[in-house]
Measured scan of single mutants.
Amino acid sequence: KTVHVDGVEYRFNNPEEADKFVKRLVKEKNGNVEVRGDTYHVE
């Protein structure tokens, strides 16, 4: 899984860790998540 945040790319081998990371980011930023294939885009 890959997570894109503000143009920075984070790669996770463990999908659960990627999910936790995304949830935390969305809370912090009050942002939205767009999923494209295996990539999460957080804005």
Score class of each variant (00 low, 15 high):
Lys29Arg: 13
Val22Gln: 03
Ala18Trp: 07
Lys20Gly: 07
Val26Leu: 14
Arg24Cys: 15
Val26Arg: 10
Tyr40Met: 07
Gly31Tyr: 15
Asn30Leu: 06
Val5Glu: 01
Asp38Glu: 08
Ala18Gly: 01
Val35Pro: 04
Val42Ile: 12
Phe12Val: 01
Asn13Arg: 09
Pro15Val: 09
Asp6Arg: 04
Glu17Tyr: 00
Val33Pro: 05
Val3Thr: 00
Val26Cys: 15
Arg24Ile: 08
Arg36Val: 11
Lys20Ser: 13
Lys29Ala: 09
Asp19Leu: 15
Val22Ile: 13
Glu9Ser: 07
Lys27Tyr: 11
Tyr10Asp: 00
Tyr40Gln: 08
Lys29Tyr: 15
Glu43Pro: 08
Glu43Ser: 14
Asp6Asn: 14
Phe12Asn: 01
His4Pro: 01
Phe12Gly: 02
Tyr10Glu: 00
Lys20Glu: 15
Asp19His: 09
Lys20Cys: 15
Asn32Met: 13
Glu28Thr: 07
Leu25Gln: 03
Asn32Tyr: 14
Val22Tyr: 09
Glu43Val: 14
Val35Leu: 10
Lys27Arg: 12
Glu28Gly: 07
Asp6Met: 05
Arg36Pro: 07
Arg36Met: 09
Phe21Gly: 02
Pro15Met: 09
Phe21Leu: 02
Val5Ile: 09
Glu9Ala: 09
Pro15Gln: 13
Gly37Cys: 14
Gly37Tyr: 12
Glu9Phe: 11
Thr2Tyr: 07
Val22Trp: 09
Glu28Met: 10
Arg11Trp: 11
Arg11Lys: 09
His41Met: 12
Lys1Thr: 14
Asn32Gln: 11
Gly31Ala: 14
Val33Ser: 06
Asp38Met: 05
Asn30His: 09
Val3Met: 02
His4Tyr: 15
Val42Met: 08
Tyr40Asp: 06
Glu16Lys: 04
Val42Gln: 08
Lys27Met: 12
Asp19Phe: 13
Asn30Arg: 08
Val8Glu: 02
Lys23Met: 12
Thr2Gln: 03
Lys23Tyr: 02
Glu28Tyr: 13
Gly37Asn: 07
Asn14Trp: 02
Phe21Asp: 02
Lys23Leu: 12
Thr2Leu: 07
Arg24Gln: 11
Asn14Lys: 02
Glu17Lys: 00
Val35Ala: 07
Thr2Arg: 05
Asp38Ser: 05
Leu25Asn: 02
Gly37Leu: 09
Gly7Trp: 00
Leu25Thr: 03
His4Met: 14
Glu9His: 03
Val3His: 01
Glu28Leu: 12
Phe12Pro: 00
Lys23Ile: 07
Thr39Val: 11
Tyr10Ser: 00
Phe12Glu: 00
Glu34Ile: 15
Asp19Lys: 10
Lys29Cys: 15
Val22Cys: 14
Val42Cys: 07
Glu34Val: 14
Val22Ala: 05
Thr2Met: 05
Thr39Ser: 12
Glu43Thr: 15
Glu34Cys: 15
Asp6Ile: 01
Arg11Phe: 12
Glu43Tyr: 15
Asn14Gly: 03
Ala18Pro: 01
Glu43Gln: 12
Lys23Ser: 12
Tyr10Ala: 00
Arg36Gln: 08
Val8Met: 06
Arg36Ala: 07
Val8Ala: 02
Gly37Phe: 12
Tyr40Thr: 09
Val22Asn: 04
Glu28Cys: 15
Asn13Gly: 05
Leu25Cys: 05
Val8Tyr: 05
Ala18Tyr: 11
Arg24Glu: 10
Glu28Phe: 11
Val35Tyr: 11
Leu25Phe: 07
Glu43Cys: 15
Val42Glu: 07
Thr39Arg: 07
Thr39Gln: 10
Arg11Gln: 04
Glu34Arg: 10
His41Lys: 09
Val42Asp: 08
Arg24Pro: 01
Lys23Thr: 08
Arg11Leu: 04
Asp38His: 05
Gly31Trp: 14
Val3Ala: 00
Glu9Leu: 12
Lys29Thr: 12
Lys27Trp: 10
Asn32Lys: 14
Phe12Thr: 00
Tyr40Ser: 07
Val33Ala: 05
Arg11Met: 04
Tyr10Trp: 03
Phe12Met: 00
Glu16Leu: 04
Pro15Arg: 09
Val35Glu: 05
Asn32Ile: 14
Gly31Lys: 07
Asn30Pro: 05
His4Val: 15
Asp6Gly: 06
Glu34Met: 13
Val26Gln: 10
Val42Tyr: 07
Val22His: 04
Thr2Cys: 15
Glu34Ala: 10
Val8Asp: 01
Val3Gly: 00
Phe12Ala: 02
Thr39Ala: 10
Asp38Lys: 06
Pro15Ser: 13
Asn32Pro: 04
Glu16Asn: 03
Lys1Gly: 03
Gly37Val: 13
Phe21Trp: 03
Asn30Asp: 08
Lys29Gly: 12
Val5Thr: 02
Lys27Phe: 11
Pro15Leu: 09
Arg36Gly: 06
Arg24Lys: 12
Glu17Asn: 01
Arg36Tyr: 11
Phe21Ser: 00
Arg36Asn: 08
Tyr10Thr: 01
Gly37Thr: 09
Ala18Phe: 07
Glu34Leu: 13
Arg24Ser: 11
Tyr10Phe: 06
Asp19Cys: 15
Asn13Trp: 04
Thr39Trp: 07
Lys27Gln: 13
Val26Ser: 07
Glu17Asp: 11
Arg24Leu: 11
Val26Ile: 13
Val22Phe: 12
Ala18Cys: 13
Lys29Asp: 06
Asn32His: 13
Val8Leu: 05
Val35His: 04
Glu17Met: 02
Gly31Val: 15
Asp6Ala: 04
Asn13Val: 07
Pro15Ala: 13
Val35Arg: 05
Val3Ile: 11
Asn14Leu: 04
Phe21Gln: 01
Asp6Phe: 08
Val26Trp: 12
Lys23Pro: 02
Glu28Asp: 09
Gly31Phe: 14
Val3Asp: 00
His41Asn: 09
Asp19Glu: 13
Glu16Met: 05
Asn13Thr: 11
Gly7Asn: 03
Asn32Asp: 05
Glu17Thr: 03
Tyr40Trp: 12
His4Gly: 02
Lys27Thr: 09
Gly37Met: 09
Glu34Thr: 14
Lys1Leu: 14
Asn32Cys: 15
Ala18Lys: 03
Thr39Cys: 14
Val33Asp: 04
Phe12Gln: 00
Lys27Ile: 10
Phe21Ile: 01
Tyr40Gly: 05
Gly37Ile: 12
Lys1Ser: 12
Gly7Glu: 01
Val42Lys: 07
Glu34Asn: 10
Gly31Pro: 08
Val33Lys: 04
Gly7His: 02
Pro15Asn: 05
Asn30Ala: 07
Gly31Leu: 11
Leu25Arg: 02
Arg36Thr: 07
Arg11Asn: 03
Glu28Pro: 04
Asp38Asn: 11
Thr2Pro: 02
Glu34Pro: 04
Thr2Val: 13
Val8Lys: 10
Glu16Cys: 14
Asp19Arg: 12
Lys1Ile: 15
His41Val: 12
Lys29Ser: 13
Lys1His: 13
Lys1Trp: 15
Arg24Thr: 09
His4Gln: 09
Asn13Gln: 10
Lys1Arg: 12
Phe12Lys: 01
Asn14Pro: 00
Ala18Ser: 01
Thr39Phe: 06
Val22Gly: 03
Glu17Pro: 00
Arg36Ser: 10
Gly31Thr: 10
Lys20Ile: 12
Glu34Lys: 10
Lys20Met: 14
Glu43Ala: 11
Phe21Thr: 00
Glu28Ala: 08
Phe12Trp: 01
Val5Cys: 13
Arg11Asp: 01
Lys23Asp: 08
Thr2His: 04
Glu17Ser: 02
Asn13Lys: 10
Val5Asn: 01
Thr2Phe: 09
Val5Asp: 01
Glu43Asn: 13
His41Arg: 06
Pro15Ile: 11
Arg36Glu: 08
Arg11Pro: 00
Val5Lys: 00
Arg11Ile: 08
Glu43Leu: 14
Asp19Gly: 03
Asn32Val: 13
Gly7Arg: 00
Val42Ala: 08
Gly37Asp: 09
Val26His: 06
Asn32Gly: 06
Glu9Val: 14
Gly31Met: 14
Gly7Lys: 00
Leu25Ile: 10
His41Tyr: 15
Tyr40Asn: 05
His4Ser: 11
Asn32Leu: 11
Val5Ala: 02
Lys29Glu: 06
Arg11His: 12
Asp19Pro: 02
Tyr40Ala: 07
Glu34Tyr: 14
Arg24His: 08
Lys23Gln: 13
Asn13Leu: 10
His41Cys: 15
Lys29Pro: 04
Val33Gln: 03
Glu34Gly: 05
Glu34His: 11
Lys27His: 08
Phe12Ser: 02
Val5Arg: 01
His4Arg: 12
His41Ala: 09
Val35Lys: 09
Ala18Ile: 03
Gly7Pro: 01
Asn14Thr: 14
Phe12Arg: 00
Lys1Glu: 04
Asn13Cys: 15
Lys23Val: 07
Tyr10Gln: 00
Val22Thr: 05
Val35Ser: 06
Glu34Asp: 07
Asn13His: 06
Val5Pro: 00
Lys1Met: 14
Arg36Trp: 08
Lys23Cys: 15
Asn32Trp: 15
Val8Arg: 07
Glu28Asn: 08
Arg11Thr: 07
Lys1Phe: 15
Arg24Met: 11
Leu25Asp: 01
Glu9Ile: 14
Gly31Gln: 07
Lys20Trp: 11
His4Asp: 02
Glu9Asp: 03
Phe21Glu: 01
Val33Glu: 06
Asp6Ser: 02
Thr39Tyr: 08
Phe21Ala: 01
His41Asp: 09
Thr39Lys: 06
Val22Arg: 11
Glu16Thr: 04
Val22Pro: 00
Glu16Ala: 07
Asn14Gln: 03
